[in-house]
Amino acid sequence: MTPSDSLRYTRIPTHQSGTIPAVGFGTLIPDPVVTRQATSSALEAGFRHFDCAERYRNEAAVGDALQEAFGAGKLRRQDLFVTTKLWNTNHRPERVKPAFDASRKRLQVDDIDCYIVHTPFAFRPGDDQDPRDASGQVIYDTGVTLAETWQAMERLVDEGHCKSIGLSDITLDKLREIVAVARIRPAMVQVEAHPYLPEWELLDFCREHGIVLQAFAALGHAMEPRVLDDPTITAIARQVHKTPAQVALAWAVQRGTAFLTTSTNPGRIRENFDISALPEDAMRQMRDEISTTVRFNTVVKTGVPGFIPRAG
């Protein structure tokens, strides 16, 4: 392994749980059968960080793929970093541990490496994951605060089986509020971040407090304007003989963030793992020459993830 190739094995230190693999595989895949296949392909490609969620409704399929790999002797549980998330309808403190235990059972693992609050918005508690009123508006739960939910998350760490806790889809202001009152600080925050939304200020705050910033939509989800068509990124890709996706993902790790990428195509999965370090002048070009700014997911304003279908 050359120093250039070692980038894909980067681990980022966190105050809470040692280190977190920077290169992660996201499991937001609608079909459980395809989820299992994609997870197996990601394991074979070399991914060791897997991001799951109750809301994705496919934790059992991820668990099946993991158990298959364990059973075949391909890897051990301690080789993996597994995250999953508390959904918006389970923010009330009494609902947190049952939700956590249900995710562990579906994933077929005793311990979760990082349990994440999926969004800072509480929805009406209940079995309906997307509660709406007669006019189609989300029904929020005003009977619980994020700080109260966080305290319940902290108790999971106290009780064992949950090694660290984190937050997703959170703004810097809201993160500051939690860090100010937290007994156990977040180990990781997961936010949309890519060359068109670099979140430098949030990254600086996370570094200051020993929190790993993990980028979802690290390639822009092929939405317009397309990150991977950016002329600076495509020029660097030609220069270093890598794809634009590999350039964007290498940039993410080299600037100090973790990332998630999702694909159901085995070839694309291998490509997304096969990243190498960029020259320093390329990193400077990415920062200085890319001026487009766009947020693709409005979840930070509503708590409704933009990439998860409402039905099904």
Rank of each mutant, 00 (worst) to 15 (best):
Y9K: 15
H161N: 13
T302S: 15
E54I: 00
T35E: 10
H91A: 06
H118I: 04
Q285H: 06
Y140A: 14
H49Q: 15
I269S: 12
Q214N: 14
D110T: 14
R226N: 13
E44M: 10
I184W: 01
N297P: 01
D101I: 02
A182S: 12
L278R: 05
T2Q: 13
V227Q: 03
H194P: 00
E148L: 03
G256C: 07
R124C: 07
P198E: 08
R8H: 14
L167K: 03
A193D: 03
R255C: 05
F100N: 07
A53W: 04
N88R: 06
K174M: 11
V294Q: 08
K85N: 02
E148F: 05
G26A: 13
C206D: 04
H118R: 03
T302P: 05
F81V: 02
R8K: 15
G306Q: 03
T83Q: 10
D111W: 13
S291Q: 06
L278I: 10
A311E: 14
A222R: 11
V247E: 09
I20W: 07
T234I: 04
I116M: 05
R185E: 01
R155N: 06
L197M: 06
L66A: 09
D281T: 14
E44K: 15
E201F: 00
S263R: 11
N90T: 01
G26N: 09
E289Y: 00
Q254L: 06
P21G: 11
A152T: 05
R255F: 06
T89F: 04
T119R: 02
R104Y: 03
V157N: 06
G210L: 02
G26C: 11
E54R: 10
T142H: 15
Y115I: 02
L172A: 05
L260P: 09
T89C: 11
Q37W: 01
G312K: 07
L278M: 13
R106I: 01
G18P: 10
A187P: 14
T261F: 10
P125K: 11
L213T: 12
A248C: 15
P195D: 05
T292E: 12
I184P: 03
A182C: 03
W150R: 03
H241Y: 02
T298M: 07
E224C: 00
I112Q: 07
T19R: 12
P309K: 12
D274K: 09
P244C: 09
A222G: 12
V23W: 09
R270E: 14
A218P: 06
S135N: 15
V300F: 06
A99M: 04
I290Q: 01
V189N: 05
H221R: 15
W150P: 08
T232G: 01
Q67M: 14
L202N: 01
P195L: 02
F47N: 10
A193Q: 09
A45W: 14
P131I: 11
S135F: 09
H161P: 00
P186W: 04
R155A: 11
P186N: 04
L156T: 11
G63P: 07
T10D: 10
P244I: 11
S291C: 00
D111R: 14
R185N: 04
R268M: 10
L175A: 03
G306A: 05
F273P: 11
T261E: 13
N272Q: 15
T84C: 08
T262L: 03
N265Y: 13
A250L: 10
R268H: 15
G160W: 06
I308E: 07
R207W: 00
K174V: 10
P198T: 10
A217G: 13
G256H: 08
